[in-house]
Design a protein around this nucleic acid. Sequence first.
DNA 1: TCCCTTATAGTCAAACGGATTATAATTGGA
DNA 2: TCCAATTATAATCCGTTTGACTATAAGGGA
Lengths: 351, 351
Amino acid sequence: MAMRGVDVQVAASKLNRLSHPGLPTTFATMDKQTKGTRKDRAAVKADEVTVDLIAFVVAVNDNEPCVLTIGQADTLPSGPFALEHRSLQSGLRGWVEQQTGHPLGYIEQLYTFADRDRIGSGRRQRAISISYLALTRKEQASGSPKCGWRSWYEYFPWEDHRSGTPPMLLDVLRPRLIEWANSVGDAAMRRERRQRAAMAFGFDDRHWNEELTLQRYELVYEAGLVQEAGSGRDTTRASLVPSKPMVADHRRIVATGIARLRSKIKYRPVVFELMPQSFTLLQLQRTVEALAGRLINKPNFRRLIEQQELVEETGETSVDTGGRPARLYRFRHAVLDETPIVGTKLPVARG
Amino acid sequence: MAMRGVDVQVAASKLNRLSHPGLPTTFATMDKQTKGTRKDRAAVKADEVTVDLIAFVVAVNDNEPCVLTIGQADTLPSGPFALEHRSLQSGLRGWVEQQTGHPLGYIEQLYTFADRDRIGSGRRQRAISISYLALTRKEQASGSPKCGWRSWYEYFPWEDHRSGTPPMLLDVLRPRLIEWANSVGDAAMRRERRQRAAMAFGFDDRHWNEELTLQRYELVYEAGLVQEAGSGRDTTRASLVPSKPMVADHRRIVATGIARLRSKIKYRPVVFELMPQSFTLLQLQRTVEALAGRLINKPNFRRLIEQQELVEETGETSVDTGGRPARLYRFRHAVLDETPIVGTKLPVARG
DNA sequence: TCCCTTATAGTCAAACGGATTATAATTGGA
DNA sequence: TCCAATTATAATCCGTTTGACTATAAGGGA
């Protein structure tokens, strides 16, 4: 944990971000951080701070998980938190609707970052970014001028394991990461880097864990294998791994959101925010698979859905399946008023 | 979900907080929220915003989970995020160490709130609060002047189920909540309120779920059964439930932190941040029980710890157990470099 | 010594989870 | 028309996990 904390810290500072949603820091980083911050509370005047709201909006179309972007560049919808906003959430909703014409449904706060000493209009100022995850359906798009949906796997090609392990993971990423690990002098640190890479990407007979999206992004970023638009980094060598960059640190926010979503679908029925009113069980499964980036065992998935009583039949059937017609289901909204499904992992004493 | 979202929103607005870590809002609240927030991005100037860092610091002493407070009032350590802070985390560490003399180890961001139109020095300004959860050990306290540890169950007496269901839950809370539910005219809303209360508190043969701490606090707050210091609320009637108030919305932050911690101990080995170097398995169990607020089955707990290989024997034994001496264990830090334990709940296809 | 306390090791049955097989109902083409 | 391909749906099998419980070991104190 200690060493992990240090390395995440290093990675983060390269991104000019010192707060990060990844693994928390611990004692190892404490000494350095606490120095130079002692000041009397009254003596600290309210410095210039701007607060930005930034949205990672997700929809699934044709079994492809998509992120809503604006402009020609790959940019997430965002805007400053202003006085007329009634709340953080309403401010975010306003910006997204204005920039994309897309009304938001489910919203969940992701993480708050602090930019480091952004120079604004002559004097130093801090920028705070509060990021949100939003789930919606594509058809609700009112076709706004300059916004679009892009598969999030364009930005994270190594995250899609639905057709097996992507070739580029073993052919490109692995050798580059090993090279990066070996490029450091200290033997212990070399081993530690290799182990981190192996754990995050499932090398060396380890299992692929789809929830480690953020750790993987931080790793490839730290290794200089990806480059973001507008960053002054000098990684112009051809050692970059093929993937689409985003503006500033938006790709990091997307990675945070993917990780959160992949974790959340396992204990909360949030998938249905992405589904149409009625759907077949296979459509539901394909949507989950799109998010998780891996295939799911069909009979077991159906059993899981049924025994949790998440859905109910509409009585109708879908014909456009290509084979036997499938029953159509709808989400049982009543489950939200019943016992919330949370993961218990402690041997609690019942009664 | 829709109705839930609405109600949480109401509860939040009473607290003068419109962002909340509880259940996310969904379509039901959308229309109201999006109104009046349309404005051109360039036209919005950077308004006055202050950013506060606020810490919920936890330690467990004598099997009692404690929160670190400052001053005579029940206040969490906090301070403004300032230019000289290298990051959000380092700013927080600085404030806590300065105000309490206590260095922090494990830190994790909790949630970001937005205060509503706080009036500061004549003109309107917004206040943003970024809250953190910190885990530490009490012995590291250098005995700072005016800070102290208090059991968090003083603020949430209904949360401690280690000695069975607290009497006040059924004797006081339940009738008051039913009364609150019945005080509304609409029959459907009455039923909805009763159901919410039953779900959160485990009434009517439902199981107690220790992770719903925040929902429970929001419920008793919304029902006017608790009152915070400095709030202008008029709930001065004797209908208050016996519990200790905190300053402003600090109790809500603590509730958020307790919920997060109770959830996290189930899938990440964070308990050890609260343990001394070496400990017996029963001490470890008692610490988890203190956090979870409920008893754990002893043999099963030991089996769980052992099969996950979280600890290793130190070789020594503890004598002050009152019975047969117990082996002493220490945390296996290596597990953090091994496959991270995350809760899989999807029937993924292996291989 | 007896009794109390706690530690530690084991058992047992039910539930869960992953994998597989079997059967049903449709479409499209030979 | 009949067969092949495709998808839906039901059912089974079995090893693992999990909750509840029992039994034995090892210390202290009256």
